[in-house]
Structure formats: structure tokens, C-alpha cells
């Protein structure tokens, strides 16, 4: 662990809010990059990044310092993002637009801009259930293995593999239905 992290954690635990602000400023770009995979809306992203740091503040006493602080925060971020999706899915079901079709159109995949590619994938993964969406997001956006996903979200490796397999089947069907194909 970084020496300045160690000092700031200790001072934060003693109630020093300025020390915690230093930690937030040090890790907010890293956490924003993770949370940006959970929402494409900047205002929503800002709120869930705040949620991560508030949750981290509440749990700071349980951080044992064995792993890196970045890893510990990333685990909180992943779980916060997952909760955000579950709430979103519940609200969508309430207003009955969960199955509304969305047009996904791809241009030549080599020339596509990173923002556009991320947007297409985000809209595509939104059709999946929150657990499947989480596995696909971590797998494709973060390049995680199933073992790493299992460790991060606290599921078994078999459960992650099963969800990945189901999600891929669904994605194949959606991609065919929504005309996601590359023009060569």
C-alpha cells in the first residue's frame, strides 16, 4: 500500500475529513472510469461515484490493508454499480418499457469511434438481466477473466461461467434480431 494512502486512511479513521478528501481526489479518476461502464449519463455517473466513496467511508474500518486500496475501492464500485442497475431494471419493469426495442446500428467496426463503440455495447448489454450484464461488462469492458469476476463480485466461478454463457446466447440472438453486423 502507498505510504500516503496509509496515513490518509489512518487520519480518516480518526475523523479527519480533509484526509479522506485527499483519498477521494487520488482515486476519483480511477473510480469514474469504472462507473462510466455502468451509466453513460454524466450526472448519474457523478452520483454513483459519490455513492462509492460514501460507502467506502462507512466501510473504511474493515479495510485491512492486505490488498491495494485501488482494488478494494474497485470491488465497492462494482457492487455499487450492480445495485444501481438492479434498481434501474426494477424501475423499468414498473413502467413496462424493459422490452422496448432499440435500433442498434454498426458502421464498419474498424473505423468506429471509441465513444460510439462503447455506446453500442452499453445499449446491447442493457437488454440482459443485471447479473448477466455485470459479467459481460467486466469481461468485455474491463477485460477480466471469469475467476477475476468471481472474486470481485463474490460469486462462484461456476456461476460466473453459467451467466457468461447465457448472456452470450442472448447477445447472439439480440445481435441477429437487431441487425448488429459488420459491413465488409
Amino acid at each position: 500500500m502507498h505510504i500516503s494512502d496509509k496515513n490518509d486512511i489512518q487520519e480518516s479513521l480518526e475523523g479527519d475529513h480533509d484526509a479522506y478528501a485527499r483519498l477521494v481526489r487520488r482515486y476519483q479518476s480511477y473510480i469514474t472510469a469504472i462507473m462510466w461502464r455502468f451509466t453513460r449519463d454524466k450526472a448519474q455517473c457523478e452520483v454513483i461515484v459519490q455513492d462509492v466513496f460514501v460507502q467506502a467511508w462507512l466501510s473504511l474500518g474493515s479495510y485491512d490493508g492486505r490488498g491495494s486500496l485501488a482494488n478494494w475501492l474497485a470491488t465497492i464500485a462494482t457492487r455499487t454499480g450492480y445495485r444501481f442497475w438492479k434498481d434501474q431494471a426494477r424501475r423499468r419493469q414498473e413502467v413496462n418499457i424493459y422490452n422496448q426495442p432499440e435500433l442498434i446500428d454498426t458502421e464498419n467496426a474498424d473505423e468506429i469511434a471509441p465513444e460510439r463503440a462503447a455506446d453500442i455495447l452499453h445499449r446491447l448489454f442493457r437488454r440482459l438481466s443485471p447479473p448477466e450484464r455485470l459479467v459481460m461488462t467486466l469481461m468485455y469492458f474491463q477485460n477480466y477473466t471469469t475467476k477475476e469476476i468471481a472474486k470481485r463480485v463474490g460469486w462462484s466461478n461456476a456461476a460466473v461461467k453459467m451467466r457468461a454463457s447465457r448472456a452470450r446466447k442472448k447477445l447472439r440472438k439480440i445481435a441477429v434480431r437487431e441487425n448488429v453486423r459488420e459491413e465488409y
Binding site: H17, Y20, A21, V24, R25, Q28, S29, T32, A33, M35, W36, K42, C45, E46, V49, Q50, F53, V54, W57
Partner: peptide, 11 residues
Amino acid sequence: APKLDVSADVL
């Protein structure tokens, strides 16, 4: 990712 400064809001 977008650049955000949430430190004041978190505090």
C-alpha cells in the same frame, strides 16, 4: 471517462 471532481460532494 469524463473528468469529475466529487470530493466536495462526498465530504
